[in-house]
Computed example of a mutant assay.
Amino acid sequence: MPNRSPHDISARRIAIIDLIAANPLPVEEIVGQLRPKAGKRTVYEDLEWLLETFPEHLKRESAGKAHGNHRVTYRWVGHSPYLLDKPINWLTEEELISLVAARGFLRDATPDQATNTTVATHGLLAGAIARLIDRAGVQDAADLLARHVVTVSRFGAAPCLAEDLAVCLAATAVGECLQFDYENLQGKRRRIHAIPQRCVIIKGEWYVIAWAGGLRNFRLSRMAAVTRTKDSPEGAPAHIPTHEVDALLETGFYATGSTKPKDRTRIQLGIAPQAWPHIRDRRWGENQAIEEEPKGLPEGWRRLSFTTTGLAECQHWVLAMGANARAEKPKALVEWVCEQAQAMVAGCQA
């Protein structure tokens, strides 16, 4: 009997999973439909290995009797795993530290809601990395590192479900689509069918950039009933260029951005010395420019200019700097800041 390479074995097992994911099948039908062909004993051995390795996914079920014999079918529940051709025999220190850091980065903010022990300790996605560390046989080495070497502060961040994040990440990674309920700022909900392009963290919160009639940025904390689907939304383009997604992030302000040329706005601000340490060495928009000794501003002030498509969020950022920032352009920004300042003064006087 010829020796089979690990690649052949993995490919055959994935082929078996694909067959029984579509319909529950007995061994005889699996053998008959499997390509390339394999013997009944080999298929039995593969099924036993899959049962032992993935007990939560592979279900062995009774299907009554056929020709006087008890009939057993096999059914796969969930998505297919990635079977490796080569075992992981070693990790560098940098690789192990990266895994521990990723586990901390993805740790759920509300693990007490989980029922599984690993999930309860780490969260859904961090728990997956914890299982990978354990399966690789480097748990003891990982324990020697600081367990909380990386922690993400959730201060002021709206909570989201780790399960929803996992679904969004998976769909984005494998090129599937998403369906979810989305609540806007007015509290209205509607069902969205979208093609996810990228998952992004902005100010400590997860967002999904997706095509839904156009490229949009969806806040994960406002998404509910998130599911994966292979069906594309109506009118979806055959291809969404990466540079369009990049442009949405490049010209946006925090989470607010647009790909429409009409939404591009040139911002011009005067920045006081007290606020400058919080402004310098950062990128706020396209074609950013800084005047060190600008005319028309007090001594020590600087002038900051940049282009953004996120004026709605930018104006709140300007207002938050109070008297340490002066809005100069565009006119809409100047008028909005003045209106807010006047309303605040009126509130204080009242």
Rank of each mutant, 00 (worst) to 15 (best):
I195A: 01
P196V: 11
R198C: 04
C199N: 08
C199E: 07
C199W: 02
V200M: 03
V200R: 15
I201W: 14
K203V: 06
G204Y: 11
G204P: 09
E205P: 00
E205C: 08
E205I: 05
W206N: 03
Y207S: 03
Y207F: 15
Y207K: 01
V208Y: 09
I209Q: 04
I209Y: 02
A210R: 09
W211T: 03
A212R: 04
A212L: 00
A212T: 04
A212Q: 01
G213R: 12
G213M: 10
G213L: 02
G213P: 05
G214T: 01
G214D: 01
G214C: 04
R216L: 13
N217C: 15
N217Y: 08
N217G: 07
F218S: 05
R219T: 12
L220N: 02
L220P: 07
L220V: 11
R222Y: 06
R222N: 13
R222M: 06
R222L: 07
M223Q: 08
M223G: 06
M223T: 00
A224N: 12
A225V: 01
A225F: 02
A225Q: 13
A225G: 02
V226T: 10
V226G: 02
T227N: 01
T227G: 02
R228G: 05
R228S: 15
T229R: 10
T229W: 11
K230I: 15
K230H: 15
K230M: 14
D231A: 14
P233C: 07
P233F: 07
P233G: 07
E234S: 04
E234F: 01
